[in-house]
């Protein structure tokens, strides 16, 4: 059967996946801490129709005929560029300017990592995420503190009953290849073989960014880019469908020979 059909079908599937990814990015353009998804493609194996050097009536074909069979998804990963910072009034709303992730302890015992810094204090003074997961690397706070101040280098001070006391310093984690982190959902990432092991340290030191209090990191989705990509994907999808239609017409002609 005509290979054109399968080649074009793989092309359409690829554009479909692209469009799905774009739609997800657009849907999350206002999600705090969201990192835009990227889909990358690689080509599929070539099928040999005739080997290089094979002969025909006119002599040998030097290059042979090798026809491709389309494209497939190479990776679907996140792009970790800095999102813009949005102001907030809550004391425990923090953002990282630069490298680094907050460390979160999951109920399963594993450590997850996130850029979303919208934290709260529980009854024991421990800092937790919106879902209630304890944030590691954050000093425990006084439950009766009226205000908390966090400096750029992550030093946490709490003000209660007229006195300010330093509670400790935030610890962040960083990875050699953040793109390799596996996404767990809910802005949480997990270490994987490809991301490299988590290296912890304090903000404002050599490889880590600064802490910005009263700020939340917005999504890094650039809506203009997404719209342009969506237009390109749509037209590529259409072109691939024309390939299918042409193959179909040709096959119909072949069938109509007799």
């Amino acid at each position: 059967m005509s290979r054109t059909l399968w080649i074009a079908a793989s092309g359409m599937e690829a554009q479909q996946m692209k469009t799905d990814n774009i739609a997800n990015n657009i849907a999350n353009v206002n999600t705090q801490g969201y990192k835009k998804g990227m889909i990358r493609f690689k080509d599929m194996l070539y099928q040999k129709v005739s080997s290089p050097g094979a002969g025909t009536a006119n002599g040998a074909i030097p290059a042979g005929i090798q026809l491709g069979t389309g494209v497939q998804v190479a990776s679907a990963s996140k792009l970790f560029t800095q999102g813009s910072l949005e102001s907030s009034s809550a004391d425990l709303d923090v953002a990282i300017e630069g490298n680094g992730f907050f460390q979160v302890s999951l109920p399963s015992g594993k450590t997850a990592y996130t850029r979303a810094g919208s934290f709260h204090m529980d009854q024991a003074g421990q800092v937790v995420t919106g879902e209630g997961f304890p944030v590691l690397g954050f000093p425990t706070l006084d439950t009766n503190s009226t205000s908390i101040s966090i400096s750029q280098d992550g030093t946490v001070s709490s003000f209660s009953g007229g006195t300010t006391s330093e509670k400790g310093r935030i610890t962040l984690a960083r990875f050699a290849n953040p793109e390799g982190l596996s996404y767990l959902g809910g802005n949480l990432y997990e270490e994987s073989a490809v991301s490299g092991s988590a290296q912890t340290g304090n903000p404002s030191t050599s490889d880590f960014g600064n802490i910005a209090q009263h700020k939340l990191e917005g999504s890094n989705v650039d809506i203009v880019k997404e719209m342009v990509d969506m237009i390109a994907a749509q037209r590529a999808y259409e072109l691939n469908s024309k390939s299918i239609k042409t193959a179909d017409d040709m096959l119909r002609m072949v069938a109509g020979l007799k």
Binding site: S2, R3, T4, I7, A8, S10, G11, M12, A14, Q15, K18, R40, F41, K42, D43, V49, I65, L67, G68, T69, G70, V71, A236, L239, N240, K242, S243, T246, A247, M250, V254
Partner: peptide
């Protein structure tokens, strides 16, 4: 001639399908 044109269509389809390949 028909066989050749079918092969050519496959080539064209590959070009179109590979538009996302860097």
């Amino acid at each position: 001639g028909m066989a050749l044109e079918m092969k050519r269509q496959e080539s064209i389809a590959t070009n179109i399908a590979s538009s996302s390949l860097p």
